[in-house]
């Protein structure tokens, strides 16, 4: 019925340039497919493995980092107990006014059954991060080995351009360090010391956050991202940053 479109070859024209007619068509399709409860923006309504950009063909066949750290979040398992937030703060000395990970709440009063959901968010450790691109001093950079978006606080001048560049609002200014601070998958505090999990993943009582190496085909994250039985999506895919934090339900 339709010609096969190679989505990855298409140029991203930006959401603001979508003509009204197409927008309407898309919305209709989105409603038909998922109802009005599709999470995030309208463009995440059809998210599936092909549109989960980090695992599109080129990245799936050859993940660029080793280990390629990734997190799969089972959104429906989150109960906002915030043990992850507490563990993160204790592990990484996050001050009360800052955050490296947060839990968002979404209420849908008209929904059938459950009317509330919680959405854990953190730095998506994007493959094409905007924050590193806009940093004038290269204080934030993509680690060439493991792909974690790191901070070199000695180089940070506190201009906050990275905050503007980040589509996920994953950065805060740490007064004590006098530098921007962000999630680094607990690299300095846990992973580099031999721990296998981030502080948040280890603290979760509901196995909501699955952490692992996406380049290892035997890993749980690889299996969860590469199956087609359950929808897997990323937040704000239209930003085109190819996140390494994935979301699923069930």
């Amino acid at each position: 019925m339709f010609d096969k479109i190679k989505l990855d070859n298409l140029k991203n024209e930006g959401v603001e340039n979508v003509p009204m007619k197409e927008r309407r068509e898309f919305l209709k399709m989105g409603f038909a497919l998922t109802g009005i409860f599709a999470g995030g923006t309208i463009f995440s309504a059809v998210s599936s493995i092909d549109r989960v950009f980090a695992s599109s063909e080129e990245f799936a066949s050859k993940y660029p980092y080793k280990p390629h750290y990734s997190m799969v979040i089972h959104q429906d398992r989150c109960i906002d107990c915030e043990r992850c937030v507490e563990a993160c703060a204790a592990t990484n000395h996050v001050p009360h006014e800052g955050y490296r990970t947060r839990i968002l709440q979404r209420d849908v009063p008209d929904a059938v059954g459950q009317k509330r959901e919680f959405i854990p968010v953190l730095c998506n450790q994007c493959n094409l991060p905007q924050c590193t691109r806009v940093c004038p001093t290269k204080a934030t950079y993509k680690d060439p080995q493991n792909g974690i978006v790191m901070m070199d606080i000695a180089k940070c001048i506190g201009c906050l351009t990275c905050q503007e560049g980040c589509p996920y609002n994953a950065r805060y200014f740490n007064e004590e360090k006098h530098a921007v601070d962000k999630c680094n998958f607990c690299f300095d505090t846990r992973l580099s010391k031999g721990e296998k999990l981030t502080g948040c993943a280890a603290a979760c009582p509901a196995q909501c956050r699955v952490f692992g190496d996406l380049s290892d085909q035997s890993s749980e994250v690889y299996r969860k991202v590469h199956q087609i039985e359950k929808a897997v999506w990323v937040l704000r895919p239209e930003a085109g940053t190819r996140p390494n934090v994935f979301y699923t339900k069930g």
């Binding site: 109960i79 906002d80 915030e82 059954g113 459950q114 009317k115 959901e117 919680f118």
Partner: peptide, 12 residues
Amino acid sequence: TRCASCHTGVKG
């Protein structure tokens, strides 16, 4: 099932 129906979390 429906975890967040009863679990209102820290925010709740």
